[in-house]
Amino acid sequence: MNRPKPNRPKYYPHADYRGDYLSRRDLLKRALLLGGASAAGLYLAYAPEDRPWSRRDFSGLRGMPEETPFQLPDFRVAPADPAVAVGIGRGGSPREMLLKALDALGGLGRFVQPGDVVLIKPNVAFDRSPNLGATTNPALIDTLVRLLLVDARAAEVRVADNPIESPADCFAKSGIGAAAEQAGGRVYLPDANAFEPLYTPGAKLIEQWAFFKRPFKDVTKVIGVAPAKDHNLCHASLGIKNWYGLLGGRRNQFHQDIHEIVSDLSIMIRPTLSIVDGTRVLMEGGPTGGDPANVRDGDAILVGLDPVATDAWAYEHLLLRPGRLPDYLYMAEQKGSGMINYAGRIRVVT
């Protein structure tokens, strides 16, 4: 019995040794713990909403998911000759026509510097084979990717689109997936995590809308490559309408005001180059096509710095439509995306 006598307070007659009762220190520790927890809980629940770490939500709106939209930079590059807004190459294979059109603007090297990360946005909206004219010509994508990687020495070339149908099937059947990958580019398919809200100042319908952001990470140059197609609702699907493919969410609502949305698209993104592929022009039955009899060889590839002028020329000379241009071009001009009157601003190289 050498154990020390416990310092036993008179409230604990049953205690045998030190560990059996709640000492003052224990009591203090416990009180502090409980007090602290209660105070923290009360603060979190009741502190006014503007205080730091406050979790109070009186109106019920604080708990709603917050969307932090991002903004796209301006991808445009000043041209060598400001008088030339659209370069048109005619006669020859797609590669030859593309080179002619690029030469008309001063060459690809003027726009794409070594080390650039370039995003190509083709039209891969449907699982159509390339001869049906509903999607971009894969030979053009192949040429463009190779030019960018080899001649312009871009660091990386990405090819992306958000099709209406199954992305893997559309890229496969249109031949663009294989063309892009064989040429050394990388295909980005959309999935649930690839979209984020984009803020477009000045847009009427898509001031903030889900946008296919993933391929745009670290991108320095953007090139749109659109086929020239008839479109039942807005009369033509050319360079500007091509950017529709980057929208996510329930974008089918916009058909209720189709000209407004297409003109909004012209300010949503300011691409480096707008290419309109006139090798297979879908004259009727667009935008899905499906009848090869409706496709004609327009024998032209346009590379434009002014998307409005590019579309205007394409409407008149590729789709061969006389008369008034589609409304969205006038609205795009009003929004400052370009000028419809292309007289004197185009250079045709045959």
Binding site: Q256, T288, G289
Partner: peptide, 22 residues
Amino acid sequence: CLPWANQIPCVVCEEVCPVAPK
């Protein structure tokens, strides 16, 4: 249907119909 019932232009269905002729 928006055009029939509400006089609101829409025609997404016709646009995406894949057969030729639609």
